[in-house]
Write a protein that binds this DNA or RNA. Structure first.
Lengths: 160, 160
DNA sequence: GGAATGTAGTTGACGTGTCATCTGTTCTGA
DNA sequence: TCAGAACAGATGACACGTCAACTACATTCC
């Protein structure tokens, strides 16, 4: 019986993982689609615009931006290049550091963000938050932070 | 006080969503990195190889493959093109349908998959499954299927 | 002050994902 | 039987992400 039990436990766990991954994929796809349809921007655009909007002076160094969103520098750089070409943000010179630049929202970027925020928040509620029971929210929150913690440790271990 | 309560509840929920998204992103990145390092393939490659491997005759129509993995046809097609160029799979003619083709594993594809399976499973255990309490597993499983369900309904509604 | 070193950011190559469109086959029904 | 609809898949254009260089400014320390 132990064999059966073990493999059944195993099967349930793989199903859990697959379901979790599939759920995230579909959710992200749908949120992206709606954001694109309603406001003409992507989730990546949204993250950058929102982070800039919340920043003290509505402007950030690329490095700080990456830090806040959790992206590596080259991803930030590529994303900014695309957003500049779409007119959502601008790169300006940085007074205090000759290497760096400052990223600022354009009027169009600000408008796109404001147009997106309400719908995006509603979509996240309707497709995710409102479907969770309180204990599920608790479980997901604590599981997320534990897994994230583990990943960070594992990364630091690798780097050493 | 209700304002405070509402906004606090709101804040906790956004933190939950952000944490969940960040956790998934980091987890997927790390699994990808390890798969790439240990077996020289991506998660996308892995999904295709495994699905082919599990198929009755070790071969599938692109459409059926997409169905099983949950990908749309153009994604399948692009992925297959890349995998063919890397020698992991082959496209052969389909006898029974002049439009279609059949995808089969190459020897290299089979070897890559077998080399990847153990490490990949261990990584998923170590970075995810083993970190979850039983009740968290239960919560994530039921939440995933409920959200997925909702997304499917929403898609069908859109299509109509 | 000047060589070594670190840091901020960009770039190119490549793999991945989506949408719209196109080609060619199969099916269907008058 | 044959015109048109449905279907299987491929393709091009473009957005996104990662890794490995690379540029150029800033620091440090002799």
């Amino acid at each position: 019986m132990s064999t059966t039990e073990v493999s059944e436990v195993g099967a349930a766990e793989w199903a859990l993982f697959d379901g979790f991954v599939a759920m995230h994929a579909e959710l992200a796809r749908e949120l992206d689609r709606r954001l694109q349809r309603d406001a003409g921007i992507s989730q990546a655009d949204y993250a950058v615009l929102l982070t800039l909007f919340k920043a003290p002076e509505r402007q950030l160094r690329p490095g700080a931006l990456g830090e806040l969103i959790g992206w590596e520098k080259s991803r930030v750089s590529h994303q900014l290049t695309r957003m500049v070409s779409r007119g959502l943000v601008e790169r300006i010179e940085c007074d205090t550091d000759g290497r760096g630049s400052l990223v600022v929202l354009t009027r169009a970027g600000r408008r796109a963000l404001l147009g997106a925020m309400r719908d995006h928040a509603l979509a996240i509620r309707a497709l995710f938050l409102d479907l969770l029971e309180p204990d599920e929210k608790q479980a997901i929150a604590s599981a997320s932070s534990r897994v994230l913690q583990r990943l960070t440790e594992s990364r630091e271990l690798d780097a050493s």
